[in-house]
Simulated assay, not measured.
Amino acid sequence: MTEAAVSIRRAREEDLPQLIALFEQDDLGGHGDTSHEDAFNDYIRAFHIIDQSLNEHIYVAELNGDVVASFQLAFLRTLRGRGGLTGIIEAVHTRHDLRRQGIGMKLLDFAVAEAKRRECRLVQITHRADREEIRSFYEKAGFSADYIGFRKHLK
């Protein structure tokens, strides 16, 4: 099984071309990700900011030396909940040809374990409302859809 051969680690700058290609495959996300050389400095800048943060990390899943999946994990301390820490899983992506092979579940298990290690009181994840198959996947992973989120684009 592919899942067993996958290893998860913190992303490195040299992973950026493979990460960008992974994001670029997401035609439904609409995030404007592109491997065009004019955009590369934007990714480099963002990567360094995230990589230097104590509360944000990008992880990759590697298979046979290739980056095949990724996610970002951020930690938010709130005053509400007696100063509790929340883990926020963001930007979960698995390469199209490797979906439904257990890699995404392995990513989520890793993220939840890391949130527990950091003593988070909860971990949350969001997805687009029109992606019903993703909702089923997250529910299978033990997440519940008990909140409705809103967002406002600023750019």
Results as ranks from 00 to 15, higher is better:
22 L>N: 04
22 L>K: 03
23 F>H: 02
24 E>F: 06
25 Q>D: 09
25 Q>W: 00
29 G>M: 08
30 G>R: 07
30 G>E: 06
32 G>W: 03
33 D>F: 10
33 D>M: 05
34 T>Q: 01
38 D>E: 07
38 D>Y: 09
39 A>Q: 05
40 F>E: 02
40 F>C: 04
41 N>E: 08
41 N>V: 11
42 D>R: 09
42 D>L: 13
43 Y>D: 02
48 H>Q: 03
49 I>L: 01
51 D>T: 00
51 D>Y: 06
51 D>K: 10
52 Q>C: 02
54 L>I: 03
55 N>Q: 06
56 E>I: 04
57 H>K: 14
57 H>Y: 08
57 H>W: 10
59 Y>F: 14
59 Y>N: 15
59 Y>G: 12
62 E>V: 12
65 G>V: 04
70 S>N: 11
70 S>A: 13
71 F>W: 11
71 F>I: 13
72 Q>C: 08
77 R>L: 12
77 R>K: 13
80 R>A: 08
80 R>C: 04
81 G>K: 06
84 G>R: 13
86 T>D: 10
87 G>L: 12
87 G>N: 11
87 G>D: 03
88 I>A: 15
88 I>L: 09
88 I>P: 03
90 E>I: 15
92 V>E: 11
93 H>S: 07
95 R>A: 14
95 R>M: 10
98 L>T: 06
99 R>E: 07
99 R>F: 05
104 G>M: 12
104 G>P: 04
105 M>S: 11
105 M>W: 03
105 M>H: 10
107 L>S: 03
108 L>K: 02
108 L>I: 15
